[in-house]
Amino acid sequence: MLNEETLYARFISGELSQKEIESLKANGDWDKLSKIAEFTGELELPSFDTKRGFDVLVERKNERTKSEPRVINFKLWLGIAACFLLFTTTWMWFSSSTTNVISPYGQTAQLVLPDDSKVILNAGSTVEYQKESWDSNRKVLLDGEAFFKVSPGNSFEVETALGSVNVLGTEFNVKARVERFEVECYEGKVQVNRNLEKLTLSSNEAIYDENLNVVQIQEETRQPSWMKGRSDFSNYPLLDVLRELERQYDIKVICQENPSFTGSFSHGNLKLATEQISKSLGLNVIISKDRKEVQFTK
């Protein structure tokens, strides 16, 4: 086969054709590769102390500038003073303003907060926080869906339009989309506040619905499905599933039907994803030529 020499690479990026998937499954490679992908996806390196590294660089640079002999004249000094003024004002402006991180449709984004807490944003999401007062005010505004790995410390709050989550050091996922407010806690404890109701989730517990019913999640689940390159749904209205499809692929979806859907779709291969959704519901799919619009019909 022509593409044989990139086959496994495309397994990882989710770009295999249906036929290739079937042949991998048939000869047992699918399971082996899945295990390797899963295991290597969880590997990490010790983190690099970039705060210190940057200070060292600044110091190095200052020393270098000092050691360079230079003829100093009045004009130059005036210039330096003006630059310095400009620089400090920009710095102050930067450091006092709110920091925004946005992941556009079709992409995820990662950020590391000043205390080394990590946030990974699913497609089409925004977080906002105050960098300068972070240590005294660990609060993140979230619109969309994100996974949090919080460093131990003072209270850490995730505020959304639909409710808020308070935590100490822990790992959890918050989904605050127009249609849903969901929280999955993988480690530690989180407190969920919604519509004046408060409840505490322990590790491997989650809420998915309006009534804040606590559900057990599988112990093996250490991450939300979207971080593993797919989106999982259990008894979801199809239209909500399709909103997620729009966010993952930066497309427009048209659909008149709204049955309930249980299953998942992969990220990284639009055709495969639409088939995964449509097959089980007996729907037909039309993908426009420019791959910007998808229609589901009966």
Partner: peptide, 14 residues
């Protein structure tokens, strides 16, 4: 070229 290297690496691992 990257995909080929990735494929080879996975093949060895597998």
């Amino acid at each position: 070229a990257i995909e080929k290297r990735m494929h080879k690496a996975l093949k060895v691992l597998k």
